[in-house]
Design a protein around this nucleic acid. Structure first.
Length: 469
RNA sequence: GGUCCCAUCGUCUAGCCUGGCCUAGGACAGCGCCCUCUCAAGGCGUAAACACGGGUUCGAAUCCCGUUGGGACCA
């Protein structure tokens, strides 16, 4: 059993979308599980649509989610002589031929075939043509596809899928501009790179019999195939731009943790019993091709949010703090060059992560402590009843006179105010919360004070007292 | 239009291959309760699905056929 070699082979014609990431992830996990090799290949033969930005987006996206490749990136445009050589080999063996049919001719014959209710496939007329080549057109190369028999794809996910060769036509393997077509380039590369398992979207399932035939004509052993069903949008329609965030990097921008996205994506079509949360090493250990679901899966943003919250709560606080900084800057809570006190930042993270599902949410929560003042919610203001004034004044004194400003001291002081006034915790905590945060919901009241610091705590308590009069 | 794929709670899914353990399990979201200084988090509970129709079988979510519905590819 030779070592497993898999590849991810995107076309750099746009951003790396989430379906592509899942395909890459499944390949990567399979490679890691099998202690095999993960190859990154960029299929950039469509020069019109391929861009350097898209290439960069693919590399950045994979890096962000933590999918590292062992070989590559290999660019198809660097391998043009290879495709030419193999096409030449087929030509020499009579397994391929030059076709001079023009677009217009093909189109009219297609229409005619349709009118006769025949399959609108290429009629193979250039297979038999002889005589001088028409000078005014540049030919394409077509593959001589068998017209009888069947080709079976032994798919690792879908099972055996049988195609009648009579349905297939002589596909173009090299365009008139000399570029290999998708099917040909992929076959030549996968064969030459010794790819053992081709795991890709099931939009390629129908291409697979043609590819198997090409492998055979070229004298190569076909790899094993596994076709993943597509990811659908929330509306169960194939994912596209109009679904909003579909590019991986948009998830980074939106404040998701890569491990949350990975965990979410892997459960889209793959399962391990009832388990929902997987640490990466565990995923590598447990990931196999046999628990992959055959049916398409729709995206559920709520579940992603839940997972992200979960990872936010369990991640290292220092790391979350560092990740939070750009979002604080974005909300103008921190100057570009300014850094936050690391101890304070970790305290903030601990206080807010129980109540945030994304980093921007957390940054928003942080505003209450970082801004000089915030507009008071009407519901909060109502809590500042005049009869609470003596209690507030006592609290001010306690806070002022505390020898140290820490949780235990604050709690002790707060309790003493309760004792002196006969108030219950819930009678005083909520109004104090309103005074300190201008909101009716927040982290624990002592945590809030610690985040605000002594000065700002006192300022806000006094401001509240003024509002009571 | 042809070919191919798919079909379990609203969503992700377990179970399907190797029928009985399924009065169909888990998770997200929903709802309720508990905890509680609020909100969360956490805990407990609740509602919610085998697309439909035929077979096969003592017995079908599980096997077979068909229908319907989605999707992909080729145009």
């Amino acid at each position: 059993m030779s070592a497993v070699r898999v590849r991810f082979a995107p076309s750099p014609t746009g951003y790396l979308h989430i379906g592509g990431v899942r395909t890459a992830l499944f390949n990567w996990l399979f490679a890691r599980h099998e202690k095999g090799v993960f190859v990154l290949r960029i299929e950039d033969t469509d020069r019109e649509r391929s861009t350097p930005e898209a290439i960069q987006a693919i590399l950045d996206g994979l890096k962000w989610v933590g999918l590292d490749w062992d070989e590559g990136p290999i660019f198809q445009t660097d391998r043009l002589p290879l495709y030419k050589e193999h096409a030449g080999r087929l030509l020499a063996a009579g397994k391929a031929y030059l076709c001079y049919c023009t677009e217009e001719e093909l189109e009219s014959r297609r229409q005619a075939a349709l009118a006769r209710k025949d399959l609108p496939k290429y009629d193979g007329r250039c297979r038999l043509r002889s005589g001088p080549a028409p000078s005014d057109s540049s030919p394409v190369i077509r593959f001589v596809t068998p017209q009888t028999g069947q080709t079976t794809v032994h798919d690792q996910i879908k099972g055996d899928v049988v195609f009648d060769n009579s349905q297939l036509d002589d596909l173009i393997i090299v365009r008139s501009n000399g570029m290999p077509t998708y099917n040909f380039g992929a076959v030549v590369d996968d064969a030459l790179m010794n790819i053992t398992h081709v795991i890709r979207g099931d939009d390629h399932l129908n291409n697979t019999p043609r590819q198997i035939l090409l492998y055979q004509a070229l004298g190569f052993e076909p790899p094993r195939f596994g076709h993943l069903s597509m990811i659908l949008g929330v509306d169960k329609v194939k994912l596209s731009k109009r679904h909003g965030a579909t590019s991986v990097l948009e998830y980074q921008e939106a404040g998701y943790l890569p491990e949350a996205l990975v965990n979410y994506l892997v459960r889209l079509g793959w399962s391990f019993g009832d388990q929902e949360v997987f640490a990466l090493p565990e995923l590598i250990e447990k990931f196999t091709l046999d628990h992959i679901n055959k049916s398409p899966a729709a995206l559920d943003p709520e579940k992603l949010l839940w997972l992200n919250g979960y990872y936010l709560r369990h991640a290292d606080t220092k790391r979350v703090g560092d990740l939070l900084i750009p979002f604080l800057r974005r909300q103008g809570l921190l100057g570009e060059q300014e850094t936050s006190d690391p101890v304070w930042l970790e305290r903030l993270v601990r206080a807010l992560r129980e109540r945030s599902r994304t980093l921007p949410e957390m940054a928003e929560g942080a505003a209450l402590y970082l801004r000089e003042s915030v507009a008071m919610e009407p519901e909060a203001k109502k809590l500042l009843a005049a009869n609470l004034r003596p209690a507030f004044e006592k609290l001010v004194t306690v806070v002022e006179q505390g020898t140290v400003f820490d949780h235990a001291t604050l709690e002790h002081g707060f309790k003493s105010v309760l004792e002196q006034t006969g108030l219950k915790m819930k009678d005083l905590a909520q109004p104090v919360r309103a005074a300190l945060t201008s909101r009716t919901a927040s982290p624990g009241i002592f945590e809030v004070m610690l985040l605000l610091g002594r000065d700002r705590t006192l300022t806000r308590l006094r401001a509240a007292i003024d509002l009571m009069s």
